[in-house]
Design a protein around this nucleic acid. Structure first.
Lengths: 236, 236
DNA sequence: CAGATGTTTCGAACGGTGTTCGTTGACGAA
DNA sequence: TTCGTCAACGAACACCGTTCGAAACATCTG
């Protein structure tokens, strides 16, 4: 009774990790790799920790929570965006469109970033630098201060939303044919609606499902936004 | 040994539920109530089932999965949107703005719907009817078919994104003062950035954080979008 | 009326999630 | 050398969506 038969005693001592110490940067690196290679859903505290050869609890010494990690990922991606430093007042509309194309390009290159970015203002320093650059373009276009300030919120909202939609489809691992099949199904669904109540939807079924593959849809949004903003510019 | 002391005997027989049978509608009802009262995160298969006095597995006989339930919630909300049936060509821009205001109103009345709607085309019949109505307004404005077709995608995208942003804040149970405090913090963060690299952000810090409380920000988006769309209308 | 067949219900479980607790160990200051 | 501090981390908590399989019920067949 004084001693039980198998007493585990100390479990051999885990030898402490011989690896280099954890840092915020190493965590973001690992998370970014997971994000790009396997999409947003693969970025869990557990999987990131596992990729670093440790447990999830270890991450919380360097990152407040999952949301903060998401923000860090967004900021890391913003770093890759190349935006003009000295905008040209004569070409501001085209420059604005280019900037939005660049934002979409980066989000596509890092699938899942849109998912992490949606619904929260990116406040990291690198993201703020993008904001500054966009503001410069808008000021070059002679937009009133208030309009420029709100537009700089509206613009990423659009790009992020578009990229997010693509991400949702991409997350399911859809191939080009899958997308085509989905669009075709969508179109025939539109056309199958009751004609008395959905005349326009049926008539425009083709147009509504057009441009889903390429960038025409996105370009349309660019056109609408820049035209709308241009209409607010104070005449010089 | 032959009999243990407390033998539970038969567990009283669960008497089979004396309640009315489960239906898709009852499930959506319960989910909607949870959504409105406690936000999107409260809408889990488990909680919906619990609200109906059953287990989560029971729901799967009527609803394919969580995503389908989300779609059903969006469609249920779309039902509440009152949009004009016979748009007036002379007032189409104002009618379009009103329609978007109505969409936002409904999304606000059902907090969490935006979260359920984001990133997926709403295909339910009631949602499609809203699409039809918006199309009618756009056609009244003499937009080319392709423009109208893409715009009818762009418009809910904007409204949903705005509502979603509000939802994220609201989900944390923020009061009016909380929002004010957050905005004030944001503003002083902008102003504290290095002046050499962020001159515009600092100069416009006030403007960028303005209009977060009311609807001015949303109205700005309406103005930009309608103006941009109007610029695409074919002259009559 | 009895039996077979199909559908609905639902407890239990699987494998995942974000996060917290409390112990362990390493390292710098005294 | 001792002490105090703090990163590391195993284990656990409370959830999540979904599936399985066995009952309970409804309905049609003989």
């Amino acid at each position: 009774m004084t001693q039980s038969p198998w007493q585990p005693i100390t479990p051999a001592k885990p030898a402490r990790s011989p690896k280099e110490p954890l840092t915020r940067d190493r965590i973001v690196d690992a998370a970014m790799r997971l994000l790009v290679e396997q999409g947003y859903d693969a970025v869990s505290m557990r999987k990131v920790a596992q990729a670093l050869g440790t447990g999830p609890a270890s991450l919380y010494a360097h990152v407040a929570n999952k949301k903060e990690l998401d923000q860090l990922l967004v900021d890391r991606a913003a770093q890759d965006m190349k935006l003009p430093e000295n905008p040209d007042p004569d070409r501001w509309q085209e420059q604005l469109k280019d900037a939005m194309r660049e934002m979409l390009r980066v989000m596509r290159a890092n699938p899942g970033v849109a998912r992490a970015a949606i619904g929260q203002v990116p406040l990291g320093e690198r993201a703020m630098l993008s904001t500054e650059r966009i503001l410069a373009i808008l000021k070059a276009g002679n937009l009133p201060d208030q309009a420029a300030a709100w537009a700089v919120d509206l613009i990423p909202l659009y790009v992020t939303a578009v990229s997010f939609e693509e991400t949702v489809q991409g997350a399911a691992g859809w191939s080009k044919e899958d997308v085509e099949r989905f669009v075709a199904g969508l179109r025939s669904y539109f056309e199958s609606l009751p004609p008395d109540r959905f005349p326009l939807t049926i008539a425009l079924a083709g147009a509504m499902t057009a441009g889903s593959a390429g960038d025409e849809r996105f370009e349309f949004g660019l056109t609408v936004l820049t035209a709308g903003l241009a209409s607010l510019a104070t005449p010089t």
